[in-house]
Simulated scan of single mutants.
Amino acid sequence: MLNRVSVLIPYKPDYGERDILFKWVNKFYQNVLPEVEVCIGESLSEPFNRSQAVNLAAKKATKDIFVIADGDVFYDPIILTKAIKLLDQHAWVIPYGKWLNVSKESTDLLLSKEPQWPFPIKVESKEKTFKNKQFKPISGVVVTTKKNFNNINGFDERFVGWGREDNAFRDAMNTLCGPYKRLDNQTIYHLWHTKVGSKGNPKIQDNNKLYNRYAALRGNKKGMEKLINERND
């Protein structure tokens, strides 16, 4: 089953802590999930264009199931097999309900160890929370088919930097392919790094304006298709 999977990882080298995390996560896939095809999408734009990086990774992929995964996230391999089994009934799957931020101390310890599952050490972590407690993250790890990814033309590269591209992907997928299924009882782990966040993106207001157009077209297939096709103009 896992030999049908291409893992798409967006990446931009920083010659610092992010590269260290990325190398560890890449080794995690080699050690723990050797069956999957790991495809790295490297975007050198400034600020980093995550959408472009995911799309570049997708162009390298040869498998029929896509796992869109951040380069600082890892998880129990079983969440992938559970998610893949659900793709017959659901257009896409968010294979976790809990996002745990690993502490700096535990991250440093993990980075000093050979990646494996289960953990070689006791890991300290804290659940990611939001002001709106009803909100749950929709990125980190996402599972869908190559067909559905292509049906919405991947990620919208007009989102410059980071922020809102995942929300637009969600609305396009839900509208044109079908709603997602979340595995509430599963967990992903996010390695510690210096926080930047969308507020550090000088283009976040432009991203918000573009995303508002996606939000206004939820459930409107013709309108959503037209918005997506604008990317080719």
Rank of each mutant, 00 (worst) to 15 (best):
P13T: 02
G97D: 01
T144G: 09
E42Y: 08
F169G: 01
T62N: 10
R4M: 09
V54D: 08
R50W: 11
I121T: 01
P95M: 00
K12S: 10
D156P: 01
F159N: 07
K221S: 14
Y15H: 09
N220V: 00
I9T: 12
L33N: 04
S112H: 03
I65E: 02
K226N: 14
K131D: 12
K195W: 15
I228F: 05
L2W: 03
P137T: 12
K199V: 08
E127M: 11
D233T: 13
E127G: 07
V36Y: 02
K199A: 13
F48S: 03
Q186I: 11
G71E: 02
G200F: 08
E225G: 14
R50Y: 13
Q116S: 07
D206T: 13
I84S: 07
K85C: 12
R170K: 08
L2I: 05
T107P: 02
E46W: 14
N55Y: 02
N208W: 15
K126I: 12
N207G: 11
F130I: 09
S112K: 07
W117T: 00
H90A: 04
Y180G: 10
I79T: 00
F74T: 00
Y29I: 09
K59P: 11
K209L: 15
Y214F: 12
K113H: 10
H90K: 12
E127S: 10
I204A: 13
K104A: 11
N31V: 06
F22H: 02
T175E: 04
R18V: 05
Q205Y: 14
N208C: 15
E124S: 10
N174G: 14
G41F: 07
K199W: 15
F66R: 11
D156Q: 06
D64N: 13
G200N: 06
A53F: 00
